[in-house]
Design a protein around this nucleic acid. Structure first.
Length: 221
DNA sequence: CACCAGGCAAGTA
DNA sequence: TACTTGCATGGT
């Protein structure tokens, strides 16, 4: 095999099939969802998105014009609603003022430059930035999340001390730079994480145990 | 009832 | 630098 990760991807895809990520009809909806889903179950995010959609607010300029207290109530079902309303406004202010409210213009920016710009915003960390770049922008930035870390660490492919940057580098250096691949691979890791690698003490009936060489402890011992 | 979810920033030592 | 804590709703 050309690389271990590529083989893992093939097996996950064969076992679970394409995941069709990200749920969302437009790049803007995907971008908003990336903020709202921070440490939150997607189910709760759906309610918040529905509130915005019902009021026809899924557009940068219109959403940016919504007063803070009103925005807070709309996104309340997603949890951390005061913080997330503020984070949304930070991002919207950036999109409106720097890119004239145009995501198309924003995503024409050089990948590395745009990533740094997003990371400079209060409330956008590496995972949120990469989710926006990959799933809303269609740009090749690999997304690392808690499941990526758990699944890989527990199978011994990365150390338990690996950082976000370490993991992203490993994926991006071993895999061909392919948006479709990055997209599907991350979605598959979340899927298998949901099924078998939650924060429960031990990996029970882990599908990857048969799929892959070995499944070890969830946490370092 | 307790625990967790597709993070991030701020506080402490 | 290396831990810890706050943020909050809703499902299991």
């Amino acid at each position: 095999m050309s690389s271990l990760l590529l083989e893992v991807y093939r097996r996950l895809l064969a076992a679970y099939g394409p995941q069709q990520w990200w749920p969302g009809e437009t790049p803007f909806e995907v971008m908003i969802g990336a903020i709202l889903v921070q440490n939150t179950a997607w189910k709760n995010v759906e309610k918040a998105i529905r509130n915005l959609k019902e009021r026809d607010l899924l557009e940068p300029n219109r959403l940016y014009s919504v007063p803070l207290v009103e925005l807070e109530e709309l996104v309340r079902p997603a949890g951390y609603y005061r913080i997330k309303a503020r984070r949304l406004q930070n991002l919207l202010k950036f999109v409106v003022e720097r890119y004239d409210g145009s995501l198309e213009r924003m995503f024409q920016t050089d990948l590395h430059t745009l990533r740094e710009e997003l990371l400079s915003l209060h409330g956008i960390g590496p995972e949120t930035a990469d989710s926006i770049l990959l799933y809303a922008g269609g740009l090749p930035s690999f997304v690392v999340d808690t499941y990526t870390y758990r699944v890989l660490a527990r199978h011994g492919w990365i150390g338990f001390d690996a950082t976000y940057h370490d993991i992203q580098e490993q994926f991006e250096s071993e895999l061909p730079q392919d948006v479709r691949l990055y997209n599907e691979f991350h979605a598959l890791l979340v899927r298998v994480g949901h099924l078998h690698c939650r924060k429960t003490p031990r990996c029970q009936g882990c599908a990857l145990a048969e799929l892959l060489p070995e499944s070890g402890p969830l946490e370092p011992e």
